[in-house]
Each structure stands twice: as C-alpha cells, then as structure tokens.
Design a binder for these strands. Structure first.
Lengths: 188, 188
DNA sequence: GTCTATACGAAGATAGAC
DNA sequence: GTCTATCTTCGTATAGAC
C-alpha cells in the first residue's frame, strides 16, 4: 500500500529529528533507516522535504497525545506522571541521545509553514493537558497555566539531559513538577 | 588585531545559532554578517566549523552569566527577574525569531565535543543561579533545585514562543516562575 | 509506484599566491 | 593575515524509463 511506505518514512523522519536534528534528517537517512525505495520520495512528498518534516512534526504531536491519554478518572498527579513517563522513556530508551522532534524543528527552521506545524503541536499539548488536569481536579485556571509550565519545563529538561548525557536534569525537573501539581491539587 | 576578527566571528556565529540554528550557521553566513575576511576562517579556526561553534556556545554561556550577575544584595525574586529579563529581551528584540544558541546546538549535533560545551554551559548557569538564589534568601537545597527548573522552564518557554511567534508562552511561564520563587522565599 | 541518472547548489575544507 | 581558486561531498530536486 502506498500510504504504508509513506507512514514508515514519516515515522523514520520523526525519529531522526528527535535524535539528530533537522539537518541530519535528509532523504538519504530516512531511506536508509526505513528501507523505503528511493523512487517514492517525491511520489509521496511532491512538495519536498518540508512536507515530510511537517508530517513528522504532526506525527510526533499525535503520538504524544495518544500516549498521554488516560483511562477514565485520572488525577492531576497521574496526568503529570503520564506525561513525564513518555519523555523519560524517550531518554532512557536512547541513552539520552534522543529528544523532541518538534523542538528540533522549531529551533532549526525559517519556514513559517513548519513553525506553524510546531506551534499547533505545542498548542494541542497545552490544551489537552489543561483539559486532563482540570478533569483531574485542578481549577480551570490552574490547569491551563500549569499545563504550559509543564510542557515548557519538560521540553527544556529533555534538552538539558541530552546535553548532559544524563537523566539527572530531567529527573530533577520531574520531581519538582510533581511537587507543584500536588500543591495545586491540595489547595482545591 | 587577530583576536578582534575572531571575536566578531564568534559573536556572529552565536547570533546566527540563536536565530537560525546550526545548519544555517555556515561560514558564508558568518562572514556575511560580520564582514570578516574569508581568508581568516581557517586561520582563526584551524579545526573547522565545530571549533567555531564550540566557541560560540561558550560565548553565549558567558554572556548570560555576565548579564544575570547582580549587584550586591539581590533577592531571590530579583535574580529570577533578571534571568527572565535577559530572555525576554532576546525574544522581544527579534520578534520571537531568536532563541538560545546552546539549545540550537544541543538538539542538532552528534559531536560529543559540542555536547560537552553545551553541558558545561548549562551546568554553569544552574550552578551560578543556585548560588545567587541562595544568597538571595533561599535554602541551599531549594536554591539549587529551583535553579534547574528555572533554566529548563525558560529554555522550553523560549522554544514555545519561537514556534508560536508570540510572547504569550514565555510570559505565562515567567509569571508562574515568579510565583514559585515567591513561595520559596516566603517559607524561609 | 518505483527505478536510474543527473542537474544544481551549498557547505566544509585545502592549496598556494600575495 | 588574507586572498582566490578549487576539490570533494552531500542534499534537494527533476527527468524520463520501466
């Protein structure tokens, strides 16, 4: 199926972005990683590289939304723990060499189309986490304010851990965020 | 003077990194931005591009340390405000198109030498902010834990604001960090 | 849908003159 | 210290066959 090769390329691009950044996410690398046929590049992405990168950013966004979605009745603390668990897994599963594909694109592109993809992903994360935190017991105001801090702090912590080649910065920030959400939940 | 051209190139590279990322920070771009003579590239950086980038990362690190250094007797709140002010200025002075050079390198390189430069810069920021926060009234434990969150959250917020082409994510995170430091200062 | 071949430009790096 | 010229490699993109 056509879309199967396309999907593999998008997933591969997202992985490469997270691990090596935008520059290293070339068609050659994606083809090598996925085993996709070279001839299908411009068949599946007639608008070229930015189209593939944009799709990879969207994919990374959807992946996190799916991973963070709890069953019924998650507390705010559990929502935070779930979000942290996703990123902890990214770091531990790669010896801290992998990070966030969306951040990698955001800091390395001039294309306003790609920036819009990234902005939309971040907005969707903040929005969904805000909803889940509110459903988990926080006030609407606290929930949406804290969701923004949560996304920013975790993204920053992932960068720090990649630089440090160590989980320590991430875990330090993670512990602090858990304390914060407990405080907010306790005051309600 | 030889080192004057070299210093201009390093400053220019740091600016380009912050604004356009590692890929776009080519020798050609640096020469165009700084007006440095093309012939001096491998005179000043015999080890090539990574040497220039590493120097630019170090430079960005030192710049922030200098900018955040207060006069005598700054409170913890003032230390936080000062750190935030530096990054707010970076964003407002560039229509949110500029971010952090160190982050840009961290997410875009495989070189462990460059990662070490970045890690050392982040470590120096956390360490110095921790000292200043402790001098500003926080307990030693609170100071160093909060310094890490501060760096991570602000770096993440700068990325979010670049993607969003808006100061809103940054200011939302900034407000939250100020509330946090006030709480920590109040409990002491 | 996939292939090969190739055009085109950019970037890093080197050589040798001045 | 700086210059021009050049080499090599690589990445994007296109053309046209199968």
């Amino acid at each position: 199926m056509a879309s199967e090769v396309r999907a593999r390329m998008i997933d591969g691009a997202a992985q490469l972005l997270a691990r090596q950044g935008l520059q290293a996410t070339s068609f050659s690398e994606v083809l090598e990683l996925t085993g996709a046929p070279r001839g299908s590049v411009y068949h599946h992405f007639p608008e070229g590289k930015d189209q593939m990168i944009g799709a990879a950013v969207d994919r990374a966004g959807e992946f996190l939304l799916a991973a963070v979605d709890p069953g019924e009745g998650a507390t705010a603390e559990q929502v935070v723990e779930r979000f942290l668990a996703v990123w902890r897994a990214v770091l531990t599963g790669s010896d801290c060499r992998s990070g966030c594909a969306v951040v990698a694109v955001t800091v390395a592109t001039d294309s306003s189309a790609l920036l819009n993809h990234a902005a939309e992903v971040f907005r969707s994360w903040r929005s969904r986490l805000g909803e889940l935190l509110e459903a988990g017991g926080l006030s609407g105001e606290d929930a949406h304010r804290f969701a923004t801090v949560l996304v920013a702090a975790v993204e920053g912590a992932v960068v720090l851990s990649r630089a440090d080649e160590s989980l320590e910065p991430f875990e330090s920030v993670a512990a602090d965020l858990q304390v914060q959400v407990r405080q907010l939940a306790g005051k309600g």
